[in-house]
């Protein structure tokens, strides 16, 4: 049923694969259903492994919130049997068993759920462990706007929902392009200079990050250029010198910005042009997933309010 041919040495022993196949075959017999039909698909995942799918997976464990959201956005939420502890959308996944995070996934709990597919991101250790145990996994790295479309298409293919995936992708890009056009149409001259603080260290979301991509699409100028990497730890002096028009910051840190040495002189602080978001809105901004347009809308609304 599932064959996972690895580019790296150490392919799973056949005996284990046979066991897993028997289990899944049994499940397929119980559940029956049209979706259990043959798939015969072979795909390369983002760890450059070749993964063959004999059937469309019916018991999926997702170890990344954006992958959970993608599965559900494709209307296959009922095929999820567990998620990582951070997946919290849509509401129905909160009732599913939680199997830890990506780097501390609870292998025993995952195996116990007898999944026929585990969706993961870069994490060599859990991938190796799962393949040793004969559990199929597929790695998708979703870190940029472009990767959202790729992830939706690939998950759609794996689940046998390619046409739904195409529709979803069209919806996402229409919404994102629409927001982008609206923002640029409102803008006269250069967009506002924006500093997005991920954390008060201060770590910033630079132009190279997913968040940075959204801001750029909204016509904002990120004070952290691409060559500094996605999330650099900045010298705070840099922010003072760049003097951003808008600061996007965690609600808990917003009242204390003026206490930092020299920061009371920053335009965004002086004129209180600050954006902060609820944890739920922040999720949509920080996760490269199918709800990207929602996150972008939240950023758009705030920028329109504080930097009209």
């Amino acid at each position: 049923m599932f064959r996972q041919m690895e580019a790296a040495p150490g392919a799973p022993p056949l005996r284990v694969l046979g066991g897993a196949a028997a289990v899944v075959l049994g499940l397929a017999l119980i559940s029956g259903g049209p979706a259990a039909s043959a798939s015969g698909l072979t795909l390369h995942d983002d760890l450059q492994r070749e993964v063959a799918f004999a059937r469309y997976p019916q018991r999926i464990v997702s170890l990344l919130p954006s992958l959970t959201e993608t599965v559900c956005a494709l209307g296959a939420c009922d095929r999820l049997v567990a998620t990582d502890r951070y997946s919290n959308w849509p509401a129905q996944v909160t009732a599913l068993p939680k199997t830890g995070g990506l780097d501390d996934a609870e292998v025993e709990a995952i195996i116990g759920l007898k999944p026929d597919l585990v969706l993961i991101s870069h994490s060599q250790r859990i991938t190796e462990r799962l393949s040793e145990l004969g559990v199929a996994s597929f790695a998708l790295n979703t870190e940029s706007y472009a990767s959202i479309g790729h992830t939706v298409t690939t998950v759609g293919e794996i689940l046998g929902l390619s046409s739904r995936a195409a529709v979803l992708n069209r919806q996402i890009s229409a919404a994102v392009d629409g927001l982008s056009a609206e923002a640029l149409a409102r803008r006269h001259g250069a967009g506002p200079k924006v500093y997005f603080e991920v954390d008060h260290a201060p770590y910033a979301a630079g132009a190279a990050s997913f968040i940075g991509e959204l801001l750029t699409r909204l016509g904002a100028r990120n004070i952290v250029p691409e060559d500094l990497g996605p999330f650099p730890k900045l010298n705070p002096e840099y922010v003072v010198r760049e003097n951003p028009d808008v600061i996007i910051v965690a609600p808990a840190d917003a009242p204390h910005l003026a206490d930092r040495p020299g920061w009371d002189r920053i335009r965004a602080v002086k004129e209180q042009r600050l954006c902060y978001f609820s944890p739920a809105a922040r999720d949509t901004i920080e996760r490269p997933g199918p709800r990207v347009a929602e996150g972008m809308r939240a950023l758009f609304d705030c920028l329109a309010r504080v930097a009209p």
Binding site: P236, R241, P261
Partner: peptide
């Protein structure tokens, strides 16, 4: 104004 903040309120106390 800005450079004196950087020099005397940020770099030196640091």
């Amino acid at each position: 104004a800005q450079s004196s903040v950087v020099l005397w309120q940020i770099r030196l106390p640091r």
